[in-house]
Write a protein that binds this DNA or RNA. Structure first.
Length: 487
RNA sequence: CGGGGCGUAGCGCAGCCCGGUAGCGCGCCUGCUUUGGGAGCAGGAGGUCCUCGGUUCAAAUCCGAGCGCCCCGACCA
């Protein structure tokens, strides 16, 4: 750590900065088991706000929550060939229970496709039972070789949506719809603007027909796969006999989709908005949106300012603002400022005797954004009415800044392989270039530069001019892709 | 699994080379003074020095083995 109070600057060592911020903002801590972590109240509060927003969106699109068990028979996982191949190395297996060795080992779910579609098969008889739209909030375990707080841990929390449909078109529409929900959430709540697109075959989910993803750019210009949505085709339906009677009286396998986002998003939030002073939490996700800090010297002043703070807090709460009064008498105001800035509370409201006398307060934003001053004196009488709107403006300014940063580090129309290497091995960023579609070219870039195809972007994200040549082999480009190093 | 680093008070570390009463900073507790950007002073609590074995009159320190964690690389949300 640079010194007792500050963080290692991002420019010196981004990854050291990230670890320090997560630990010292009290988002999470290491648990005694390698690679697993404890999510602390501040981090969990952010996750809860993420859950709340997403859960509502899932319900608004017709999904219902359910819960499927943690333990899955080993044989289930083995049923889909690609699927088991994809997950086998990282699955934790329970071999003993009740003091005896089990006849069939149980796997701790790395994901729940197998158990869920096995159950769907029991519940679906007719096309009238479709679509079946289910979501679950759960923990999963993947024994990763290398772990990082929030970004990759042995156990993590997520939601996994699982649906069954009558035909491919319906399943595809669902897959794309839910990717869109993720985008809405990431932009609107996290102020983290993703690029949307399809994954190449080598990057797609084990067992899926097609995988789509939201790729966000972190401040070190690396990509973070922030959410995925899969069209599973009939692969799982065939293995688990998820069949239904069609309207025409025939029989068909259902078409499935699955989609998920995880606590990894919390890491993405940190790496999108955090600065050398700590975390920055967008207002819509902040467990505390405004912290009130009374400032006083004497007991009389203390009574005056603390009462004033609680009074204002009550009004703000009624106006729908999540507030906290930090009336701890053991810390000086400055210490409180640093603590709440480290944790990323969007705005602080200072209330001192001079403010009370003027019937005003001092707003201090977490950072200067969108040309607004950080400090802003405001009459008490207007705080309650204007703060919700100002918080929304702050939220929007965070998104604008993130979009600007992403664009500034995106390189379109790259046609020279040397240029790709220069960018990827230098400052990093998203490189838009042509690809012939061959796995060999994809592999070569990965071997040479550690960059991978993050996605084949949707039309909205593509460059005005379609690339003509494959960046790697010079052959005819079948599509435009985004290259970047990724988490 | 390869490379690197580290294990000493709650946290961060020094001490180890050259064996001899276990220390510093921060935090914590008590009191007084403080409080508009990380408070000051005084007093105080807090330790299987990662584990096991060896050498020695004597081991945090030397030797051997083991364990754990973090960071960097190969797999992945």
């Amino acid at each position: 750590m640079a010194d007792e109070q500050g963080f290692t600057p991002r420019s010196t060592d981004f990854s050291a900065w990230y670890n320090e911020v997560v630990l010292r903002a009290e988002l999470a801590d290491y648990s005694p088991v390698r690679g697993s972590m404890v999510i602390r109240p501040w981090g969990y509060g952010i996750w809860e706000n993420m859950q709340r927003a997403l859960d509502q969106m899932f319900k608004d699109t017709g999904h219902q929550n359910a819960y499927f068990p943690l333990l899955i028979p080993m044989s289930f996982l083995e049923r889909e060939k690609e699927h088991v191949k994809g997950f086998a190395p990282e699955v934790a297996v329970v071999t003993h229970a009740g003091g005896k060795e089990l006849e069939e080992p149980l796997v701790i779910r790395p994901t729940s496709e197998t158990i869920i579609y096995a159950m769907f098969a029991k519940w679906v008889r007719s096309y009238r039972d479709l679509p079946l739209l289910i979501n679950q909030w759960a923990n999963v375990v993947r024994w990763e070789m290398r772990t990082r707080l929030f970004l990759r841990t042995a156990e993590f929390l997520w939601q996994e949506g699982h649906t069954a449909h009558v035909d491919e078109a319906d399943a595809e529409a669902e897959t794309i719809r839910m990717l869109g929900v993720y985008r809405t959430f990431m932009e609107g709540w996290m102020a983290m603007p993703p690029v949307l697109g399809r994954k190449s075959d080598s990057e797609k989910f084990a067992g899926a027909l097609r995988t789509y993803a939201c790729e966000a750019m972190m401040q070190d210009n690396k990509a973070l796969q922030a959410g995925t949505s899969h069209n599973l085709g009939q692969n799982f339906a065939r293995q688990f006999e998820l069949k239904f009677q069609t309207a025409a009286g025939g029989e068909d396998f259902a078409w499935n989709t699955s989609w998920g986002v995880s606590t990894r998003l919390v890491g993405g939030l940190v790496m999108t908005h955090g600065d050398d002073g700590g975390v920055v939490v967008p207002p819509r996700l902040a467990p505390i949106q405004a912290v009130l800090v009374p400032i006083y010297r004497t007991d009389e002043e203390r009574t005056l300012t603390v009462e004033k703070a609680h009074g204002l807090a009550g009004e703000l709460k009624r106006a729908g603002v999540r507030v906290h009064v930090d009336d701890r008498d053991t810390l000086k105001p400055g210490a409180k400022y640093f603590e709440w800035e480290r944790k990323g509370v969007p705005v602080r409201i200072e209330i001192g005797p001079r403010d009370v006398a003027k019937q005003s307060v001092m707003l201090v934003w977490r950072l200067e954004l969108g040309g607004r001053p950080r400090k802003e004196p405001m009459l008490e009488s207007v705080v309650v009415d204007s703060l919700p709107e100002r918080l929304e403006q702050f939220q929007q300014a965070l998104l604008d800044a993130a979009i600007a940063r992403r664009e500034a580090n995106s390189y379109r129309g790259v046609t020279e392989y040397a240029r790709l290497r220069e960018i990827v091995e230098g400052a990093g960023g998203f490189v838009y270039a042509g690809w012939c579609g061959s796995p060999e070219c994809e592999e070569k870039v990965k071997d040479d530069t550690k960059a991978t195809i993050r996605c084949i972007p949707f039309e909205e994200f593509r460059s005005p001019e379609a690339p003509a040549r494959c960046l790697v082999c010079g052959g005819e480009a079948k599509m435009e892709v985004i290259w970047a190093r990724a988490y």
